[in-house]
């Protein structure tokens, strides 16, 4: 009986360990760190406070909806990456940069990862991904945050 109990506990420990490793691996796959996700409300606040340093905002999705954002085009396209690279080459490495797409939930978005990887590779130190986990409608427009007029 004791042997069965030990075996069961060992089995459970292995399952839990495998599960934990999978979680660590999955979270480590994203090119951004948790502190590089910018809350939408925080970006919106900067628009209302002209004294606050204004970031350079790049739309790397299908339409530049957010106020003051620059339309680059979908980050999955080579042409967009080329266009962005050119714009980024004019900025200092400590520039305050925000990128966003908002087409789909993060796990299905084809645009955010190639762009974030590019920013990492180019050695930028202060770049953030706007945290739009569902899409730009739910996480930005519906909240009444600033959009282009």
């Amino acid at each position: 009986m004791k042997k069965i109990k030990i075996n069961l506990l060992s089995f459970l420990a292995i399952v839990l360990l495998t599960f934990a490793i999978q979680i660590i691996n999955a979270s480590g796959q994203e090119p951004w760190k948790a502190n590089q996700l910018l809350a939408p409300a925080d970006l919106n606040k900067t628009f209302n406070n002209p004294k606050s340093p204004q970031p350079v905002i790049y739309s790397i999705g299908f339409q530049a909806i957010i106020k003051n954002s620059i339309d680059i085009g979908p980050g999955r396209d080579k042409e967009s990456l080329k266009k962005l690279k050119l714009q980024l080459s004019k900025l200092p490495k400590d520039a305050n940069i925000v990128i966003y797409c908002g087409c789909c939930p993060f796990n299905a978005c084809p645009n955010i990862r190639p762009v974030f990887n590019l920013l990492n590779e180019m050695g930028f130190k202060n770049h953030k991904l706007l945290n739009l986990p569902q899409n730009i409608k739910v996480d930005w427009i519906d909240k009444g945050f600033a959009i282009k007029k």
Binding site: F62, Q63, I65, G102, C103, C104, P105, Q134, N135, I136, K137, V138, I141, D142, I147
Partner: peptide, 14 residues
């Protein structure tokens, strides 16, 4: 895109 008024009327979430 997502700014379409129809997305608001139909309360599209995804």
């Amino acid at each position: 895109f997502w700014a379409s008024p129809v997305a608001k009327t139909y309360n599209l979430q995804e």
